[in-house]
Structures are given as structure tokens and as C-alpha cells.
Design a protein around this nucleic acid. Structure first.
Lengths: 196, 196
DNA sequence: CGTCTCCTTGAGTTAACTCAACGTACGTGG
DNA sequence: CCACGTACGTTGAGTTAACTCAAGGAGACG
């Protein structure tokens, strides 16, 4: 379980290219899959110096057996991860770079908000451009240019790892963020949290 | 549950582009997610005239409560779906069109094999090029060209919906392919570039 | 104060796209 | 049985989004 800092699950293609297939933020449990899958097919790596907690799989399995309702909760959590995956596929497969970038920022901001890590629409996202590129299927250079475009269009402001989503509420319907809405709005509903 | 024919779960971006985020073949259960997720965030659509069976969610939930081991099996099944998702993200995000195409064919062939739907390495894959494009994040035109290239390089032969993987058997033993693994283990094969 | 990692910018290249036209198979209704 | 419509597949030509390469900053750190 993540106590602090983002973690990504990564894979490599035969050609040695890296893909980050999912991100986890503070408070989330990355490897719930491993509970009932014998083979691990990806690597988890911290994207910045982080604090993580470990839980023994056999202990968790014992808990699941004794308390079916907890098992169901864990199951549901992995189902949500699946829903996020499917949105991620859509993002990488069919959105162009600019919207794709906006989308992942929306998702991260939303999820950080859900764990109370956001103040005044400012999120700490200590992820390098290179890692963002690997998450989005883009080159570092292009990630950089898309972020510039987001700034230029007045959608975000940044200082270091801090990302400020400008006009979050109002720009959502009108601007680039709109395309991102369905995804994390769904995620929102799934997690049972209140949006905005 | 699918009795016959492929089904895809699809999503649309704000610009109206379609992405098929996952495919299911005969014998698989597409909407296991729906069991414990209240909101459905994608559409399931048959990609060819198919036969499907329906199971009531409340019935399944009752079964899960009475038989925890079945619940665990279902959970594991959704975890495998998750693993396939993550491979799909990698495929769409970081592989180029040719390899991407080869990869999805491998996955389909592997999964069809797992349900006994393959004879002599010939698989029935009745999916239009347009749908393949939506699954891979490619245009119809490019899908067509990549298939031609696969044929030209002697990797596949086709006739109608039938796809014959030409060097499947010979390359399999060398690359650590293991019979009887769950479907997502196709990753193993592909990471070793078995097919190519 | 050099080294390292990350970020930025410019310039040229290319993989994949779009558009548009034509081919082919199949079913349907006259 | 044929004309027609529809859906899918194929091909060529021109375009573009994103990539690669290369080189120069900017901050962190021993």
C-alpha cells in the first residue's frame, strides 16, 4: 500500500520500449492482482522517492477467507482498476497527444483529490516528463510540448512538480478537459466519492 | 457468457472515435465486472452474428456468497482480464503498427486455442478490419497494409475470416511457451517475440 | 565545479493518417 | 435472374502528428 508517492506498473516490449500501464497514488494498493495470480507480469516502480507499506499475501488471503465482505471489497477494488485500464487503453489508442495529456492530468488530479491530496486545485505530481511519456505512449519531447500548450491555453499553471488546474469547473465543459470527463467521472462514481 | 462469436467492449472519445478496449472469445464471460460495479462504463457489442448466454447478476452474487471458492475463481478471472488490459495498453502505447497487429493475432489465436477452437493452427477470426483498427488504435487502411505485410513476410496466411499462423509451432518450444497457462500468459510468448 | 538528471528548443524525418476512388461479395426486391 | 444497395476490402497519393536527433540550459549534489 502506498503511504506516499506515485508508483507505476511498467512493462517492456521486445524492442525495449517502456510502457507504464497504470499509476497508483497515495493510499492505493497496487498489487492486489498478485493475491490470486501466481505469475507477476509487470514491474512496480516508484516514480519518485516514496514510502510504501507491505502486506503479506497469505495474511490477506486468510482475511479474505474469514471475512467474505472484505474479499468482496478487495475484488471491487480490482474491478475499478480494470475500469481505469480500459479507459487508459482508450486514451492511448484513440486520443491525440494534447487531449491524452489533459486526460491523464485530470485522472491524477481527481484521484489525488479523492485521497485529500489537493488544496485549491493544486496537485503535487512529481513525475518526470519521461515517465509521463511512457504512461501516454508519447516521446519526452512531445510530452513537454503538450504541457506547454496546456499552459499557453491557460488550462494549467505549473511550478516544479506542482500542477494547478485552472478554471477546473468552468473549463471542463468548454475546453480540452471535456473529453477526459467521462472517464474519471465514471471512476468517481465507482469510488463513491463526490465530484467537485 | 459467449457461446459463439467474438464480442468487444467499446468506448467512444469525446470526438466520437471508437476504441475497443478488450475482446472476448467463445466460452469467456465479458461482464464479470458488472457483478460488483454499479456503473457500466463501456458497451459490449458483438463483432459478428453471435450466440450469447445471460446470467442474472443477483443469482451469480448469491452463488458467490454461498460458495466462496467460486467467488475466488470469478475474482481470479477478472484479475486475468486486468492482466490482459495491461498488456493491451502496452501494445497500443509502445508497439508499432506491424508488431501491434501481430500481437493481437497471437493473443486471439492463443485464447482460441485455450477453448479448443483451433485446428492445425488455423483460427477463425471473423472481425472486420475496421474493428481491428478500433482495437489497435489504427486506421482501417493501415490495418489492411499491416496484414498484407504479415502475409508477405510469410507469417500468416488467410482465407476469408480464417487466419493461419505459419511459424507458430516451430518457434513455440524455443521461447519458453508453456501449454496450459491462463490466457494472459500470452504475454510470455510475445515478450520473447515468439511470433516474429 | 564537474557530473548527473531532467528540461527545453529547433530542425529534419517518418509512421500512420486522411481522402478518394474503385473492387468484390452478398443479399434483397422487382 | 438481374439490378441495385450495402458493407467490406484494397490501392494510390498527399498530409500531418508525432518522432528522432542533437545541442544547449538549469538545478541538485557530492
Amino acid at each position: 500500500m502506498l503511504i506516499d508517492g506515485p508508483v507505476g506498473s511498467t512493462k517492456y516490449t521486445g524492442e525495449g520500449k517502456r510502457q507504464i500501464t497504470s499509476l497508483f497514488v497515495t493510499g492505493e494498493i497496487p498489487d492486489l492482482q498478485g493475491l490470486y495470480l501466481s505469475v507477476m507480469d509487470c514491474t512496480f516502480s516508484t516514480l519518485t522517492p516514496s514510502r510504501v507499506g507491505f502486506m503479506r499475501h497469505d495474511t490477506l488471503r486468510a482475511i479474505c477467507e474469514q471475512h467474505p465482505s472484505i474479499a468482496t471489497a478487495f475484488w471491487q477494488s480490482t474491478l475499478i482498476d480494470g475500469a481505469i485500464y480500459s479507459e487508459w487503453v482508450t486514451n492511448v489508442g484513440r486520443r491525440e497527444a494534447f487531449t491524452r495529456m489533459a486526460h491523464i492530468l485530470c485522472e491524477l488530479i481527481y484521484r489525488l483529490r479523492a485521497v485529500g491530496r489537493i488544496e485549491d486545485h493544486v496537485a503535487e505530481i512529481p513525475i518526470t516528463k519521461a515517465a509521463l511519456g511512457d504512461a501516454l505512449g508519447l516521446s519526452t519531447v512531445h510530452v513537454n510540448r503538450m504541457l506547454q500548450e496546456l499552459r499557453r491555453k491557460g488550462l494549467i499553471a505549473t511550478s516544479g512538480p506542482r500542477v494547478h488546474a485552472l478554471n477546473w469547473a468552468s473549463s471542463r465543459p468548454r475546453r480540452g478537459f471535456r473529453e477526459g470527463l467521462p472517464a474519471w467521472a465514471v471512476t468517481e462514481v465507482l469510488r463513491g466519492k463526490t465530484f467537485l
